[in-house]
């Protein structure tokens, strides 16, 4: 059976390819459910990334905190949300960053969608 896998603009489908690519990164982010792990990461990010075996692309995206790069490196948004949350970033902050808007403009865009 074939089915339509044509890309949807601005959207990365988190499928098997992405899941394999991002496994180490997502596993590290999953560990952030635990407070002690969050503290360990914040105390020494490089050592923590090595412990989870992140590749160079993933490490750089984590250092830069650029969400589109984290997604390109295989990150899944639900796991990345745990990473972003450590820095007090919510999904509007993350949305604003990915769309190149200010947070206020991003919120306004959401509000206008209701009109």
């Amino acid at each position: 059976m074939t089915h339509n896998k044509e890309p949807i603009p601005g959207t990365v489908m988190f499928d098997g390819t992405q899941a394999m690519k991002g496994y180490a990164l997502n596993k590290m982010c999953y560990s952030f459910n635990n407070k002690q792990n969050r503290e360990e990461f914040l105390a020494d990010e490089e050592a923590y990334m090595d412990k989870y075996g992140l590749n160079d692309e993933q490490k750089q995206a984590v250092r830069d905190k650029v969400v589109l790069d984290l997604i390109a490196a295989g990150g899944n948004i639900y796991y990345l949300a745990k990473f972003a949350g450590m820095y007090g970033l919510n999904v509007q902050d993350v949305g604003a960053q990915q769309t190149g808007m200010s947070v206020e403009d991003f919120k306004e865009k959401l509000r206008r969608a209701g009109e």
Binding site: G10, T11, L68, I77, V94, G95, L110, A113, G114
Partner: peptide
């Protein structure tokens, strides 16, 4: 809703 990608913030009333 869409959280990820350049299409983040997509809503279709």
């Amino acid at each position: 809703h869409q959280l990820d990608g350049q299409r983040a913030g997509f809503i279709n009333k």
